[in-house]
Amino acid sequence: MPLLQKKPWKVWWNQSHRALLALVIIGVLVPTQAHSMDSVRLALQWVPQAQFAGYIVAKEKGFYAAEGIDLTLLPGGPDVLASEQLATGNAEFATLFLTTGLQRRTTLPVVNIGQFVQQSALLLIAKTSSGIRAFSDLDGKRVGLWNNEFQIQARALFHQMGLDVTVIPQSSSLDLFLRDGVQAASGMWYNEYHTLLSYGLDTEDLQPLFFSEIGLNFPEDGIYCLEETATHHPELCRKLVKATIRGWQYAFAHTDETLDIILRHMQAAKVPANRPHQRWMLKRMEDIIIADTTTPLGVLREEDFKRVCQVLLETGFLKNAPTFTEFYKGAAR
Rank of each mutant, 00 (worst) to 15 (best):
M1K: 07
P2W: 02
L4W: 00
Q5M: 12
K10C: 12
W12C: 14
Q15W: 13
S16T: 13
H17G: 12
R18P: 00
L20D: 10
L20F: 13
I26G: 10
I26Y: 10
I26P: 03
L29N: 07
V30K: 01
P31L: 10
P31T: 14
A34H: 07
H35W: 04
H35I: 12
S36H: 10
D38A: 15
L42I: 14
Q45N: 14
Q49E: 13
F52E: 03
F52N: 00
A53H: 01
A53V: 04
G54H: 00
Y55F: 14
V57R: 03
A58F: 03
E60Y: 05
A65W: 03
A65N: 09
E67P: 08
G68N: 07
G68M: 09
D70V: 12
T72R: 06
L73Q: 07
L73V: 13
P75E: 09
G77F: 07
P78K: 00
P78D: 15
A82F: 05
Q85M: 15
L86G: 05
E92G: 15
A94C: 11
L96F: 02
T99N: 08
Q103M: 14
R105T: 11
P109N: 11
V111P: 06
N112L: 15
A121I: 06
L123P: 09
L123F: 07
A126S: 15
S130R: 08
G131F: 08
A134Q: 11
S136Q: 11
K141A: 10
R142A: 12
L145A: 06
W146L: 11
I152L: 05
F158K: 03
Q160P: 02
M161A: 09
T166L: 03
S172H: 02
S173M: 04
D175G: 06
D175W: 03
L178F: 01
L178D: 00
D180M: 02
V182L: 08
G187H: 06
W189V: 09
N191C: 08
N191G: 11
E192C: 12
E192R: 08
T195S: 13
L196K: 08
L196I: 13
Y199F: 12
D202N: 15
D202M: 11
E204W: 04
F210W: 04
F211A: 09
S212I: 08
G215Q: 01
E220W: 04
G222S: 14
E228M: 06
E235D: 12
R238W: 05
K242Q: 15
T244A: 10
R246N: 10
H254Y: 06
I261W: 00
H265I: 05
M266H: 05
Q267L: 09
A268W: 03
A269N: 09
K270S: 12
P272H: 11
N274I: 09
H277I: 14
Q278S: 08
R279G: 07
L282A: 04
K283E: 15
M285H: 02
M285K: 03
I289H: 01
A291M: 01
R301Y: 03
D304S: 13
R307H: 15
V308S: 01
C309D: 04
C309L: 03
L312T: 05
L313S: 09
G316T: 09
F317W: 05
L318M: 06
F327C: 06
A331H: 05
